[in-house]
Structures are given as C-alpha cells and as structure tokens.
Simulated assay, not measured.
Amino acid sequence: MQQQIRASGPAGGIASHAQYRCRRPVVSTRAAVAGGKVYIDPVKKECTAFAPATVANLGPGFDWLGCAVEGEGDTVTARVLPDQPGKVVIDKIEGDNGRLSLNAADNCIGIAAIETLKLIGQPSCGVALTLHKGLPLGSGMGSSAASAAAAAWAVNGLFGSPVSKDELVLAGLASEAAVSGYHADNVGPSLLGGFVLVRSCDPLELVRLPFGGSDPLYFVLVNPLFEAPTKQMRAVLPRDVPFKSMIHNSTQGGALVAAILQGNARLLGSALDSDCIVEPVRAPLIPGMIAVKAAAKEAGAYGCTISGAGPTAVAVVSDAGVGARVADAMAAAFRSEGKLEINSKVVVRLDPEGAKFV
C-alpha cells in the first residue's frame, strides 16, 4: 500500500495509518528555560549524515516522480556551536573545486540547516557544517537535493531527531527553491528513499510508491563530463503543449506508476522512454544524448531517458550483467557521438532508506 504524506507547513494535521500530515514535532530533546524562552539543547556534539543520489522525472514523470538510488551521494557533518542560538556557518566544503559559497544563506546545506532549526524550535546553540560532495554539480542526479537532505538529517540528528523525515522535506524544498526551483522530486526521495510521487508542493503532498513484486530492478547511470544547470535546462521547456502530447504523457505517467506498484521493470523502462514533451527539447542540448538513448536500447535496456535535467542518462534493466553491457554502450555513444569524456558509469539498485546517519 502506498504511503501518503501531507504537510501544509509546521502546523499540519494529525497522522493516520496510511496518510501522514506533518506537524510541529513534540520535542524529546533536553530543554532549558532562559529569559522566559524554552531553549532546546542538542544531545550530541557532532552528527554526520549521508543522502543518496536521485533520478527525477523518469521521462513523463516531469517534476512529480523521482527515486533514490544506491551508490554515491553527499555527506554533511553538523557540529554544535555553543552559546550561539540559531546561528549556521559552513566551515568547509570538499569535492566542489571551490565553486560553492561558504555563506550559509547562499548554499543549499546552509539554507536546509536554517530551515531545520526553525522546525526544531528554539535551539540553545548554533550549527557548523562540513560538506563532502560525492556527486558532481549539475549532474542530473539530484546533487543539490542530496546536499540539502544530508544537512537537514545531520542537524536534526544533533537534537535527537525530533523532526520526521516527512516534515524535513519542507526544509529541503526551501533549499531547492533557492538553487534550482521549488520542486520535491529530488529532495523527497533523497530523504525518504524509494520511489516518491509528488502530488503537490503547495501544500506539500507526497506519496511513497513501493516497488512491488520480486523482479530485480537496476538503473544504469552514465554521467558525461558536461554540465547542464537545472535553471538553464528549464528555460527551454515549451510554454504550450499540444493536446495529444498531454494525453500521451498522461498515459505514460500512469504506466510508470503501474509499473512501480506491479514491480514490472520492463514496463517501467518502456514508460520512462516515452516522454514526448520535455526530453525532445532537452536531449539536443546534451551532446550525443539521442545516440546514447538508441545505444542503450540496442544493448538490452528496456528504456532510456535523461536523469533529472541531465546530462546523466539513465536506463532500466533487470539484470546486472546486462546493465554493465548497457553502461559500456552508453558511454561509447557519449564519446563517439557527443565527443564527451565519461565522469562515471554505474549499475545501481533502488535505495529504500534515503538519508541515513554515518
């Protein structure tokens, strides 16, 4: 049964069996009273969290469907800043080649940490952050969302995890809005794990979709050395969509959801391969992408499309051996047709857990 999560902000409703309305948490951490205010004390001096890469859009699931995958991701360590209530600073960032700002208000981990402290309440301390980037920037694998998810989970962990992952998606959304747009198809699965359907962002309403059955499911991810910033890739999207295209993508989106619930990798691959609105305008901007898509299917993939905003290409297979062959074919097409070198090529499973403590 799919699990549904709703949140209109910190003051939501009441939880039931299959549906969750995020609300201000009941804080179980130690609290101290000073100047008439109740301050919440941390329970740890330091906490480290990892959040996985994600595959968003999945073809016709543009902005409303994503999943977390095993393998690389981002890691954030949160450290207590004594006697500096609510302050957030970034001490160090590794793996970004010096490109990301150390100003907390301008960085996705800083924004996520600030919003997480608001959800926690009145912290008696501040937080210092260290980020290790395991994902390349502008990769189409949810790089900024993984950073935000790891930061939110690490800061939450400092205080004994009083805020649920469901509500922490709100902190991640605030972070995403500042760097790539107000959409939860990356940060939702990076925090929660598995497949996540975004029914609404305002108010936030997420539906977890369990991959049914026992059939194996593998994702082939090939990331070329080419950057496709989300804001630039969104700028090429059509303002008007033909009626027939809308119907086609709606049916294929329905097939995506059916494939997930049935555990049907073949149908999942076929459906994600069938986008006729977004992929046609984005693929020509990624050198070699059209050839990569054809090469993946010729090598045995059930389907192939752009992961997120690109340039990473994602294919679906049900066998790791076939996946290795597909990865080689996709990488070769990027090199020969796109004249691009390859940053990484991996065959990975679904990550059912999402953000986790290290």
Score class of each variant (00 low, 15 high):
residue 229 P to L: 04
residue 272 L to H: 11
residue 295 A to D: 10
residue 211 F to C: 05
residue 218 Y to C: 00
residue 226 F to W: 05
residue 274 S to M: 10
residue 290 I to H: 04
residue 276 C to M: 10
residue 292 V to P: 02
residue 208 R to K: 14
residue 180 S to C: 08
residue 227 E to S: 14
residue 256 L to Q: 01
residue 245 S to Q: 15
residue 298 E to H: 06
residue 218 Y to I: 03
residue 166 D to A: 15
residue 291 A to C: 00
residue 264 N to H: 04
residue 227 E to P: 07
residue 232 Q to S: 15
residue 276 C to P: 02
residue 220 V to K: 05
residue 223 N to C: 15
residue 181 G to K: 02
residue 225 L to P: 01
residue 186 N to V: 13
residue 229 P to T: 05
residue 268 L to A: 04
residue 174 A to G: 10
residue 229 P to H: 07
residue 217 L to V: 08
residue 282 R to E: 08
residue 260 I to M: 06
residue 177 A to C: 06
residue 159 F to R: 02
residue 223 N to G: 04
residue 199 R to K: 14
residue 213 G to W: 02
residue 287 P to K: 09
residue 189 P to Q: 01
residue 298 E to R: 14
residue 219 F to Y: 13
residue 243 F to V: 13
residue 251 T to L: 14
residue 176 E to P: 01
residue 239 R to N: 11
residue 211 F to G: 11
residue 215 D to C: 12
residue 184 A to P: 01
residue 288 G to K: 08
residue 299 A to S: 04
residue 287 P to I: 13
residue 256 L to Y: 09
residue 284 P to V: 11
residue 260 I to H: 03
residue 184 A to N: 05
residue 230 T to N: 00
residue 163 V to H: 07
residue 219 F to D: 09
residue 244 K to D: 15
residue 288 G to V: 00
residue 250 S to N: 07
residue 205 E to Q: 15
residue 262 Q to H: 12
residue 165 K to G: 12
residue 198 V to C: 07
residue 178 A to W: 06
residue 203 P to C: 04
residue 293 K to C: 03
residue 186 N to L: 11
residue 281 V to H: 06
residue 283 A to N: 12
residue 292 V to A: 11
residue 230 T to C: 00
residue 169 V to D: 05
residue 224 P to I: 11
residue 197 L to C: 12
residue 262 Q to I: 10
residue 234 R to V: 08
residue 261 L to M: 07
residue 160 G to T: 08
residue 271 A to G: 02
residue 274 S to P: 00
residue 176 E to F: 00
residue 160 G to P: 06
residue 198 V to T: 14
residue 203 P to M: 04
residue 293 K to F: 12
residue 222 V to K: 09
residue 182 Y to G: 01
residue 215 D to M: 14
residue 211 F to A: 06
residue 161 S to R: 12
residue 163 V to S: 02
residue 262 Q to V: 08
residue 221 L to G: 08
residue 242 P to L: 01
residue 169 V to E: 04
residue 288 G to A: 00
residue 219 F to C: 04
residue 259 A to Y: 03
residue 237 L to C: 13
residue 294 A to V: 12
residue 240 D to M: 11
residue 201 C to L: 02
residue 264 N to A: 05
residue 191 L to C: 05
residue 234 R to L: 08
residue 238 P to G: 05
residue 272 L to G: 08
residue 278 V to W: 00
residue 187 V to I: 14
residue 285 L to W: 10
residue 279 E to C: 11
residue 296 A to M: 07
residue 209 L to G: 08
residue 299 A to N: 09
residue 300 G to N: 05
residue 183 H to S: 07
residue 300 G to Y: 03
residue 219 F to M: 05
residue 180 S to V: 08
residue 164 S to N: 04
residue 278 V to L: 01
residue 182 Y to W: 02
residue 169 V to N: 03
residue 243 F to N: 09
residue 287 P to S: 12
residue 174 A to T: 03
residue 159 F to Y: 13
residue 283 A to E: 09
residue 209 L to Y: 03
residue 183 H to Y: 14
residue 290 I to D: 14
residue 161 S to E: 15
residue 194 G to F: 11
residue 249 N to R: 07
residue 160 G to R: 00
residue 289 M to C: 13
residue 265 A to M: 12
residue 166 D to N: 07
residue 201 C to Y: 03
residue 281 V to M: 12
residue 292 V to I: 11
residue 241 V to I: 15
residue 256 L to F: 09
residue 297 K to D: 04
residue 213 G to C: 09
residue 297 K to Q: 06
residue 209 L to W: 00
residue 257 V to N: 07
residue 230 T to M: 03
residue 221 L to E: 05
